[in-house]
Design a protein around this nucleic acid. Structure first.
Length: 328
DNA sequence: CCACGGTAGACAT
DNA sequence: TCTACCGTGG
């Protein structure tokens, strides 16, 4: 998921730090997805078999307490609805989990507990109910939670962009593609991790981003292959980078490729634009205005017709609900 | 050099 | 489920 080769390429500008040293006294947002999954991992058999357990909730709350002990205030951001473009992938995942569950049950019947467990781990699903339990537990202890209308990524990018928080704690490189000021990844339970600052990009060794605008950086990411659009055959991060560095915009990159006779599927450009817009105009919740807005305001940037077409990519306006206490 | 497929190990207990 | 690393083939 995300932009696979991005984090390794940014090794030279990552800074090892303790979360408390980096953000003590500040407010950050936390991508709940990872902790939810790790918590589920700890009790996958129980969750799969419907055995009552609260281990996953305790795991999450413990890590939240750890953050608090480090002097970091956090808002925990949960995923909301799935984007239209991801339905097929979701269905495939469900099938895989189903298969793993069948295998787990067989192993369990045969008394092979360890083999069963390997399969349970692959069969666990993080359900909205589990998210709700975690949210309730967090709020009982005064932790702030927020359920994104769709992807947590976009929601967190919005929170950083408008200064509601000063950083994002996540494992997802998409937050860098979004241009987030500060991304804290690989955070272990003891609070150590690495920080990547967008302003440091110019100092990167190897791939140079000198002269790159955030837009160029995003276009490079999409060109190299992202969740919304696989890359052209033979194009990875390195090629995407040199193409954008040379031509500045995807427009000119594609024009160049046609000129060179490189085979590009005829719908690629349209799909590229779709992917870009999905990144830029995702629905997010604004805590201040207390309503849904687009991550970036399309008014005056996109024409009316294009704006009217956005729901095909970013989904419709989801029904109102109590976002600031989660739910779903 | 680079993309990419396959794969081993981590995740938490 | 996802990332990091390795060998291969372009």
């Amino acid at each position: 998921m995300g932009i696979s080769a991005l984090l390794p390429a940014l090794k030279s500008i990552e800074r090892a730090a303790h979360v408390g040293d980096a953000y003590g006294g500040a407010k950050v947002c936390v991508d709940a997805y990872v902790w939810l999954h790790r918590g589920a991992y700890a009790c996958s058999r129980e969750l799969c078999e419907g055995v009552k357990t609260t281990k996953h909730v305790e795991y999450f709350v413990n890590r939240a307490r750890g953050l608090r002990r480090s002097g970091v205030e956090a808002v925990f951001v949960f995923d909301g609805g799935r984007l239209p473009g991801k339905a097929a992938e979701e269905a495939q995942r469900r099938r895989n989990r189903r298969e793993a569950l069948d295998k787990a049950k067989t192993h369990a019947r045969n008394g092979n507990a360890s083999a069963a467990n390997e399969c349970y781990v692959r069969a666990v699903d993080v359900t909205p109910e589990m998210a709700r339990e975690v949210i309730e537990a967090l709020e009982r202890e005064g932790f702030e939670c927020l359920t994104a209308p769709y992807e947590a990524d976009a929601q967190m990018a919005y929170l950083v962009k408008h200064g509601f928080v000063s950083a994002v704690i996540t494992e997802d490189s998409d937050l860098i593609a979004h241009g987030c000021k500060s991304v804290f990844t690989k955070m272990s339970p003891d609070g150590s991790g690495i920080e990547i600052r967008f302003e440091e990009l110019g100092k990167n060794r190897g791939m140079s981003f000198v002269g790159f605008t955030p837009q160029m950086f995003l276009e490079m990411c999409v060109l190299s292959g992202c969740d919304y659009l696989p890359s052209l055959a033979g194009v990875g991060l390195k090629k995407a980078h040199s193409l954008i560095r040379r031509f500045k915009t995807y427009n000119k990159v594609l024009r160049h490729m046609k000129f060179e006779g490189i085979s590009v599927p005829k719908d690629y450009e349209a799909r590229f634009v779709d992917a870009l817009m999905t990144f830029k105009y995702s629905w997010v919740y604004c805590p201040k205005r207390q309503k849904l807005v687009n991550l970036n305001d399309p008014a005056g940037v996109l024409d009316e017709k294009t704006i009217a077409d956005l729901p095909r990519l970013i989904g419709g306006v989801p029904p109102a609900r109590d976002r600031e206490s989660g739910g779903d």
